[in-house]
Design a protein around this nucleic acid. Structure first.
Length: 307
DNA sequence: CATCAGGCGAGAC
DNA sequence: GTCTCGCCTGAT
């Protein structure tokens, strides 16, 4: 067990910010109904939340499946417990959770005159940009297109359960690795459809084949600068501008990548008609994008179909 | 029943 | 190069 104290870190916000689909809150019963009583997080209603950060109060426990491992994380205010050895923490999770980055510094870059961005950043101040596995991000963001968070999680869960290597963590939790390119290249289109992947099934199949036969080299992509990496990723079937930017941001940690999806598009049109000052946030545009995205997702007019 | 959800590829121009 | 359209599926 490793215990740290950290500001600008909320495991809940990281989970809900839509960059990571295999991080789940533990110990809240899997409600099957629509409007079950919420489990002790305070807010009695499911109404649209006030633009106040939801990361205060409460004690949360999350399970993460990533990098071929399973990790449980517990947070109470700014104290975070990682259920692993100090060695594993130092070698893997410190980097994965981007704990060496100074998010206060990034907050400090924000133009105070930009009230909208200031509010968005304050709201999502617990978000961090993770360093996730490249292959997993490629497939996950292919799946994410024209899709919603709940179904994305379901699809990925099915894919892993059906085709990922089954493992058992030390404390007994059973989990499934994300299926490798080798495995996914062998899965038939029909089987992919059975994971509710819909028309994305073909993209996944073709992408797996492209990686397997060496048309696209993942290890090389990891060494490429931003522009070149994106170009290379877009050779994959089902990977366009937006998905490539997400992969650059969440797997390659190119924090200047700025994915533009429907949420961001809406925000840019509504709040930044004269253009968003990307230059001001050079090097961190992607991090800033996450604040905008999350804020709109949680408080935007139709942002109600998450989780 | 239509529309939309963290788009993309194919084809038309 | 830019535009339009169809696409799996589930929710509203």
């Amino acid at each position: 067990m490793v215990v740290i104290t950290k500001d600008y870190f909320s495991i809940r916000q990281i989970c809900e910010s839509g960059q990571c689909f295999r991080l789940e809150e533990l110990g809240k019963e899997e409600d099957t109904g629509k409007k079950s009583e919420s489990t002790g997080t305070g807010t009695g209603s499911d109404a649209i939340r006030e633009p106040i950060s939801p990361m205060d109060g409460g004690e949360y426990r999350y399970g993460l499946t990533a990098l071929g491992r399973y990790l449980e994380i517990e947070q109470k205010e700014n104290e975070i417990k990682f259920d692993c050895t100090q060695e594993e923490f130092d070698q893997i999770w410190r980097s994965y959770f981007d704990l060496d980055e100074d998010y206060g510094k990034i907050m400090g870059l924000i133009d105070e005159a930009d009230a909208y961005l200031a509010a968005a950043a304050a709201f999502g101040r617990g978000i961090r940009i993770l360093r996730q596995d490249l292959w997993e991000m490629i497939i996950s963001f292919i799946i994410s297109q024209q899709n919603n968070l709940k179904r994305i999680r379901k699809c990925i869960g099915l894919l892993c359960q059906n085709y990922g290597v089954k493992k058992t963590a030390e404390q007994g939790t059973v989990y499934y690795d994300f299926p490798s390119p080798e495995i996914l290249a062998q899965v038939t289109l029909e089987e992919l459809y059975a994971c509710n992947l819909g028309y994305r099934s073909r993209y996944i199949k073709e992408t797996a084949l492209s990686v397997l036969n060496g048309e696209v080299d993942l290890e090389r992509i990891k060494t490429l600068p931003c522009r070149a990496a994106k170009e290379e990723l877009m050779k994959l079937c089902g990977v366009g501008t937006k998905v490539a930017d997400c992969i650059c941001l969440f797997a390659l940690h190119q924090t200047d990548a700025f994915p533009v999806d429907t949420h961001i598009n809406r925000v840019l049109a509504r709040e930044y008609a004269k253009g968003f000052p990307r230059g001001r946030y050079k090097g961190y545009a992607g991090t800033i994008q996450q604040y905008l995205f999350y804020y709109d997702l949680k408080t935007g007019f139709k942002g109600d179909n998450n989780r």
